[in-house]
Amino acid sequence: MKQSWSDLRAEALSSPEARESYDATRIRFELGSAVRERREALGMTQAQLAQAAGLRQPAVARFEAGGTMPTLPLLERLAEALGPRLQVGFETLDRAG
């Protein structure tokens, strides 16, 4: 019998190590997407954001692609360069992505 994608995914994520890796990847992707969307809404290039945040353009590209897990100081620098105040908080599990 052929397994569905959701069954395969559930089976693959059944180990704690796989779930932890998946969650870390999801967080990196969501943070990178949020920065990219804000940057594009402001009409900024990656190079302009990098300069405003004191980074290099390849670092911004890696971050936006979900390739790196940022530190809070890095997120603060990006937020300052993009305008909004960085807000860090906790959500109940029924609301978390």
Rank of each mutant, 00 (worst) to 15 (best):
11 E>G: 07
12 A>P: 02
12 A>M: 02
13 L>H: 04
13 L>C: 06
14 S>A: 15
14 S>V: 11
15 S>D: 13
15 S>G: 14
16 P>I: 01
16 P>E: 03
16 P>G: 02
17 E>W: 01
17 E>L: 08
18 A>H: 13
19 R>Y: 07
19 R>A: 05
19 R>F: 12
20 E>H: 13
21 S>L: 13
21 S>H: 09
21 S>T: 10
22 Y>L: 01
22 Y>V: 00
22 Y>P: 00
23 D>K: 07
24 A>C: 12
24 A>Y: 09
25 T>H: 11
26 R>F: 09
26 R>Q: 14
26 R>W: 12
27 I>R: 15
27 I>P: 07
27 I>G: 05
29 F>E: 14
29 F>K: 13
30 E>N: 13
30 E>L: 15
31 L>N: 06
31 L>R: 08
31 L>K: 07
31 L>G: 09
32 G>P: 08
32 G>S: 10
32 G>E: 08
32 G>T: 10
32 G>C: 11
33 S>C: 04
33 S>D: 10
33 S>P: 00
33 S>T: 10
34 A>T: 08
34 A>K: 10
35 V>K: 02
35 V>Q: 03
36 R>G: 06
36 R>I: 07
36 R>C: 09
37 E>Y: 02
37 E>W: 01
39 R>T: 06
39 R>M: 04
39 R>S: 04
42 L>T: 01
42 L>Q: 06
42 L>R: 06
42 L>E: 04
42 L>F: 01
43 G>F: 01
43 G>W: 00
44 M>C: 06
44 M>I: 05
44 M>E: 09
45 T>A: 12
45 T>R: 11
45 T>Y: 03
45 T>M: 03
45 T>N: 09
46 Q>T: 06
46 Q>F: 05
47 A>N: 01
47 A>Y: 00
47 A>F: 00
47 A>I: 00
48 Q>K: 05
48 Q>C: 02
